[in-house]
């Protein structure tokens, strides 16, 4: 037998894509714990369900596409999509909403484009946007109120299962309500900031427990940056842009959602560290990442403030996904030995 003649390099670092995906999924655990603690079992059940659906639909579509199933399931990308969707969907969303969102995310927005790495749009957010526009009732009424707000323990496990799988939505009536972002946006139109806070929905708590969720996701995100899984560019740009917009246009608490609610409520931190940073669909140059992140931050503020939806991470991210290839083409870094960066598309010959 001859010698092995492989081309250099002959050594490889310890990193792998499966590991990267797994670490991202694990970094959501603080957020998942916070959500479960504050909103009950719903989120955990959603995550498990979404993961199961994601893996099942991935396996099914891989079989149809005649691709090696276990090889691709091991890349953990479907699992991560499931985790992110489970975290993003309302805790009391019926099982079929989760199933539709997840399977659509895997089959249509990922595998039909060629699988991992080839999808132009963030699969989890495509799935989310689909159910958001298709089932607006379920998507706006199935949010849980935090134990902090209700002052009572969260709904029991069996009841939660019954709400999600058996359609016994009435069981959740006492535990569900509009999210703070939603409530504030509607109430502030008719009253002042102090009045809004005094209302039963807020019970004096501006973020209604969501701040803990967001802080938990922030912690997970910082861990990802420290582990060099993601870079700081997109989250920092996105949160800075959101802050700046809020300070410039929405500084009046009696008219617009206040900054603290923007930053620490809804899916802000989940979006900034886990959704917007999806490398496949984001911009990839350092400068491009800053522009991409800032774009999401601005769109997030615009849609939350003047749009019809209370939260807007999905739409903001999807809109910027469109722009990512274009941003990349015009934000090449300067290469060693060049006096300036070469940007733009190559001239047609």
């Amino acid at each position: 037998m001859g010698l092995l003649t492989l081309s250099s390099p002959h050594t490889h670092g310890p990193n792998s894509t499966s590991k990267v995906m797994a670490i991202v999924a694990l970094a959501t655990v603080p957020g998942l714990i916070a959500m479960t603690a504050l909103f009950g079992w719903g989120t955990l059940i959603n995550v498990v369900l979404a993961c199961a659906v994601a893996l099942a639909s991935e396996a099914a579509i891989l079989l149809l596409r005649k691709r090696p199933v276990s090889f691709f399931l091991k890349d953990n990308s479907a699992l991560l999509t499931g985790v992110l969707l489970g975290l993003a969907l309302p805790p009391f969303a019926p099982f079929w909403v989760t199933a539709v969102a997840t399977s659509f995310a895997i089959v249509f927005s990922k595998q039909l484009y060629g699988g991992m790495g080839n999808n132009p749009f963030n699969p989890a957010m495509v799935g989310y946007a689909l159910v958001l526009v298709s089932f607006p009732v379920q998507m706006t009424t199935a949010w849980a109120l935090s134990t902090q707000m209700t002052g009572a323990p969260a709904m029991g496990f069996a009841d939660t299962l019954s709400v999600i799988f058996a359609g016994n939505a009435h069981l959740a009536d006492a535990f569900s309500g509009a999210t703070p972002l939603d409530a504030y946006k509607h109430l502030i139109a008719k009253s002042t900031s102090d009045d809004v806070l005094a209302q039963a929905t807020f019970n004096g708590w501006l973020n209604g427990g969501w701040e803990w969720v967001n802080i938990a996701f922030l912690v997970g995100g910082v861990l990802l940056i420290l582990r060099r899984i993601i870079t700081w560019h997109i989250p920092v740009a996105m949160l800075s842009a959101l802050t700046l917009c809020s300070l410039m246009f929405g500084w009046d608490e009696d008219m617009y959602t206040p900054l603290s609610l923007h930053l620490l409520s809804g899916a802000t931190m989940l979006g900034a560290f886990f959704i917007a940073t999806d490398p496949v669909t984001a911009s990839t140059t350092p400068l491009g990442k800053l522009i991409y992140g800032a774009g999401i931050g601005i769109l997030l503020f615009v849609i939350r403030t003047w749009g019809a939806y209370p939260d807007a991470v999905a739409f903001a991210v999807l809109l910027m996904n469109f722009a990512a290839p274009f941003i990349d083409a015009y934000t090449q870094p300067r290469t060693y030995g060049h006096s300036k960066a070469r940007r733009g598309l190559p001239e047609k010959k």
């Binding site: 990267v20 790495g117 060099r228 984001a282 060693y336």
Partner: peptide, 26 residues
């Protein structure tokens, strides 16, 4: 000592390569 390379997976454009590139390429 120097394991042979695994089967390549899809590029997820994570950009770790451009962070490592000494020529500042993408």
């Amino acid at each position: 000592e120097l394991p042979l390379n695994d089967v390549a997976m899809a590029c997820i454009r994570c950009g770790m390569c451009s962070e490592a590139c000494p020529a500042e390429l993408l």
